[in-house]
Amino acid sequence: MKILIIVPAFNEEASLPGVLRDLREQMPSADVLVVNDGSEDSTSRTARDRGVKVVDLPFNLGIGGAVQTGYLYAAHQGYDVAVQFDGDGQHLGTEIEKLLKPLEEGVADIVIGSRFLAPGAYKAPLFRTLGIWIFSVVLSRILSTAVTDSTSGFRAANRKAIEFFAGRYPDDYPEVEALVLSHKAALRMTEVSVAMRERTAGKSSITPLRSVYYMTKVLMAIFIDLLKKVR
């Protein structure tokens, strides 16, 4: 099984060495692709020095465009499985095996690593918890499968899902919207419980102040996605 680990990275020179070391130790047989999303720091250099594959986007596309670049690469190069793994250090290499299992068993096309399946495992700020809860209620209804951690960027996709995402991946709120589009494309998804680390460097793009505004926009995006024609 050819596995590609897609690491989207925007100005992650500080956390990238740790992430890449983690991946080399835990997943020595998998290929690692760092998608440098138009970073202004030495993200690209840092990744190249560590011998992983690197693609440099000429300007910043945002997380959706960067992840899709990884899926395009996986589709072109004939990978069987692609794993999305954040460059900021919050995901753990030890947890990847858990994501791969449902794909190997053939019970899902997309596997989402969830922080919230194990009760009390992860503490998020109050506003975020509330927002995540609302997403989970809305999405679980739409997707007709329980989704507890829809904003998780820790995912694995099989060949079928790789090809779908290579052709179509959302830009605005990609984690959440990708689930809605996959559902419309009749891809099967499942969640597995994973541990995540607090971020090691850099800061979250979601501040408490923006949470409510963000939530409204995401909910609107979800409903707009429902109107979209898929294939």
Binding site: V35, K53, V54, V55, D56, L57, P58, F59, L61, G65, Q68, T69, L72, Y73, H76
Partner: peptide
């Protein structure tokens, strides 16, 4: 274009 350019360059 940006994606294709990045992939082709790689």
């Amino acid at each position: 274009l940006a994606q294709e350019l990045a992939l082709v360059r790689e």
